[in-house]
Design a protein around this nucleic acid. Structure first.
Lengths: 253, 253
DNA sequence: CGCGAAATTGAAGACACTCAAAGAGTGTGG
DNA sequence: CCACACTCTTTGAGTGTCTTCAATTTCGCG
């Protein structure tokens, strides 16, 4: 089974054991910095699966540091069409800068836990540890690059390529969270509709594409279980070079 | 005529007169900070229209601060399909972080001028002026948001909506560069093919959409001349609230 | 076991694409 | 200054991918 060992969704009490250290703001931080970061947090917060962390157009004066669970960012048009912009994994920064209106919503796919940092603390935090500002910029920059790739996928690729790319991205990024874990299968807490809304397609059509991919022995995604049958072919169908994945996970190349 | 007064494309000699102060790294900086920033520059550089600032997959160890001219970022697939990711205006940061491979190319649409900041200077710069790190993060964050809106447009909107949105965005963002300037017409240094590649459509289809929009008296775009005939209707067709534009230009709402 | 949400399949139609050719505009060199 | 070459734009006809609508089946959960 690809399912990771069952963990409670409670927030870790202290930063040193926090999973956001794998890829979040605190990655590679000296323990001393961790203590400082903790000082700038105003608290923690839990969300249930399906719950909105914040909605389109809401005001927020805090930054969420996702510590556990899956969250997706989405845009909603007047008539109900939905576009999923990003799937956020632990370590992601979900809030906003400055006291402005949210240009997108954020919804929990699983139970989720976040650390809360008020915006007003951001200035002083960066003042005290200049490296954090750069780290912040770097994280946002990586998200922007992911958005750009996503753009390229939706704008210029066929449905088959798009679906393949979505699954591949999710698989690779998830696997980075569990470096020691190794399997061709995982629990992916999405419906086909989520994939469709991320890929700019309809649920019906995603279903047909998945049928093809399954028939071709490339990948299976069925009731929240994702299994990679033929990785090489998957990269091929997605039109992606294995080298590209380094940019998803923040490696230097 | 909407054409701005003819300016030479030479780089300003000193920061205080640089146009990147309108919306770039240096916006709202104290004069003292400007002097410091200048100290971290390694020099300036010029590019001709049509020239690549850098190509997909190239390595760069410097950051470009666009000072004058239009540049677009693009992705290129194996088979030649092109996706335009972003149109950059003066003030934009074009380089990369860290010594990594460029995930996209950048090409000048007009003659362009940039200030060059080596990556190795970034750490020390931020060390000296912590605010710059935050400003950096904020700029990238805004670009990410623009990418998200773009994503939503391509993924969920009709060709008509997409083209309208592209033109509207370019018009509004350009106008911000010339706050005192006011006209319903501008020189837009793009072909219909550029619009198509940005909107995820073909040039032929963009042409048909433009014909419709012209016939409906909403907007004209013909041989690099853009004219807004009916702003209200344009917002309407683009499916955009006038309030949304604030996020494009970096205003607080 | 039975209910609701998600997945699956079919048939018909729409929107955008491809291919192809002609017309308009721009720039260059004679 | 005009002519030629080139790029960009425009238009038509036919095609294909993806959508829409609707019905049925499967799955997870109480």
């Amino acid at each position: 089974m690809g399912r990771p060992p069952k963990r409670s969704r409670r927030l870790p009490v202290d930063c040193p054991s926090c999973r956001a250290r794998i890829d979040g703001l605190c990655k590679d931080c000296a323990p001393e910095v961790l203590r400082v970061m903790a000082a700038y947090k105003s608290g923690n917060r839990q969300f249930k699966a399906g719950e909105d962390l914040f909605r389109l157009g809401e005001r927020r004066d805090e930054l969420y540091h996702l510590v556990d669970g899956w969250v997706f960012l989405y845009d909603l048009l007047q008539d109900g069409r939905r576009q999923i912009l990003h799937f956020a994994l632990p370590g992601a920064l979900l809030g906003l800068y400055s006291d402005s209106v949210a240009p997108y919503g954020a919804q929990a796919l699983t139970d989720a836990a976040v650390g809360v940092i008020p915006h007003t603390n951001l200035g002083p935090l960066v003042e005290e540890h200049a490296g954090v500002g750069l780290r912040l910029a770097w994280m946002v920059w990586r998200e922007r690059n992911l958005a750009y790739e996503h753009l390229s996928s939706i704008g210029r690729r066929s449905a088959r390529e798009r679906v393949a790319r979505s699954l591949l991205e999710l698989f690779v990024r998830y696997r980075m969270q569990w470096p020691s874990y190794c399997a061709d299968e995982m629990h992916l807490p999405l419906t086909q509709e989520h994939i469709a809304d991320a890929a700019g397609l309809t649920g019906v059509h995603v279903n047909r594409i998945l049928r093809e991919l399954r028939k071709d022995g490339i990948v299976e995604f069925h009731y929240r279980r994702l299994r990679i049958l033929n990785p090489d072919k998957l990269f091929d169908v997605a039109g992606i070079s294995p080298l590209d994945v380094f940019s998803w996970i923040g490696h230097e190349t």
